[in-house]
Simulated scan of single mutants.
Amino acid sequence: MKLLHSALRFRVNYFSDLGRHQVVVWMPGDTPPVDAQMDVGPKIEHEVPIDVFRSDIAPLKQGRFYPSQLLHADDAPGPMFRVKQLNDAHFVANFSHPLQDRIFSIDSGKSDVSTEPIGKVTQLLEWSGMETQYQTPTDFESPDAFAREDESPDAVFYAEPRKLIHVDAVCARRIQALYRTVLPENARVLDLMAGWRSHLPDTVASAVGLGMNAEELADNPQLAERVVHDLNADTKLPFADASFDAVVCTVSFEYLTQPRAIVDDIRRVLKPGGMFVVTLSNRYFPPKVIRLWTQLHPMERMAWVGMLIKSAGFKKVETYVERGLKRPKEDRYADRLAESDPLFAAWGVVP
């Protein structure tokens, strides 16, 4: 009989021009109550000369977040800042908490979970708001955004089956739980960039896997159909219009070199009302990840994916973060990291 742990599921809720946002942190059941309107501090903005920023380390971009160490200054009023306005001579650095100018709420609920909750109250607002967008969208992409360390053909890199799960077992279960919550029941699902495991719930009717390695796809017990296809070589999906109720991409989006074209085509193969769901975490293959991914905070990665989904014409865009559960002891990083891999997700619905 598996031991269940008493837990509190705290959730921060807010909106931005991108859509709805949720940040969930699992905490021990005896965690004291949290104020539904926690204080995030005052508004702190400064106009800064452009040459104060260390542009030799990173490009300065509208809407991006940066650590204050990238400023030639010893008296920065906060550990990070967001670029609110930018011209050739100056930029406005916002050192406030990302939720300082937004309405947000915090709720909680009791639950018994199979994994020990170890989250802390400080995590509720630690990252919250970094994915929000203003009317002027964040300028994420540089000319080299989709360059990679290894530009050799992907067919060569993925020729040998790896049969890896790119998150720990706890995070994998949370991905499956999220899919169970957001995907329509009895859906025909396309698992994009699939491997030997899909993390789909038993509520889907059937799944088609599109991936790079035939042996891995053949070993995936959840797939009814299997298609080997290199999306970086050919962005057009080999399916008819309106073929699927949902498309998922699980911890693989960071390898796409032409993501805009692919997200556009994902909308084509979805039925009206169909969903595109992208789940992310913090592990990746360095040789094949796009350069942009290595330059962004995980919350900004999720925001960028959400912006791609919205710009492709999807509606009801949402982002979701979940963290605070204990890492399984058999995971290879268990001796260094106490907490399970975080889960990030973004999704939208075809109108």
Rank of each mutant, 00 (worst) to 15 (best):
L70C: 13
L70R: 10
L70A: 09
L70S: 06
L71V: 02
L71P: 01
L71I: 08
H72V: 12
H72P: 01
H72W: 14
H72R: 11
H72I: 04
A73W: 12
A73Q: 14
D74Q: 04
D74R: 04
D74K: 04
D74G: 08
D75H: 11
D75E: 13
D75S: 13
D75C: 12
D75I: 11
A76K: 10
A76L: 10
A76F: 09
A76Y: 08
A76P: 09
A76V: 15
P77D: 05
P77Q: 13
P77E: 13
P77M: 14
P77I: 15
G78F: 13
G78A: 07
G78V: 13
P79R: 09
P79K: 12
P79I: 15
P79N: 13
P79C: 05
M80Y: 13
M80L: 01
M80S: 07
M80F: 11
F81A: 01
F81W: 05
F81H: 00
R82T: 15
R82K: 15
R82V: 15
R82E: 08
V83P: 13
V83I: 14
V83Q: 14
V83E: 07
K84D: 12
K84T: 12
K84L: 11
K84P: 03
Q85C: 03
Q85T: 13
Q85I: 00
Q85W: 04
Q85S: 03
L86H: 02
L86T: 09
L86P: 07
L86G: 08
N87G: 02
N87Y: 06
D88K: 07
D88C: 00
D88G: 00
D88F: 12
D88N: 01
D88S: 10
A89K: 05
A89T: 13
A89E: 15
A89H: 15
A89R: 09
A89L: 15
A89I: 10
H90A: 02
F91S: 06
F91T: 12
F91R: 04
F91V: 10
F91G: 04
V92K: 05
V92G: 01
V92Y: 01
V92T: 14
A93V: 11
A93M: 06
A93N: 08
A93F: 05
A93P: 00
A93Y: 06
A93L: 04
A93D: 12
A93H: 03
N94F: 02
N94D: 15
N94A: 07
F95D: 01
F95A: 08
F95W: 08
F95I: 12
F95M: 04
F95C: 06
S96L: 09
S96C: 12
S96M: 06
S96K: 10
H97N: 08
H97C: 03
H97Q: 01
P98E: 08
P98Q: 15
P98N: 13
L99V: 03
L99P: 05
L99H: 05
L99Q: 11
L99R: 11
L99W: 00
Q100K: 11
Q100L: 00
Q100F: 11
Q100A: 14
Q100M: 05
Q100P: 00
D101L: 01
D101F: 02
D101W: 04
D101H: 03
D101A: 09
R102F: 11
R102M: 02
R102S: 08
R102Q: 10
I103S: 03
F104N: 08
F104C: 10
F104M: 07
F104K: 03
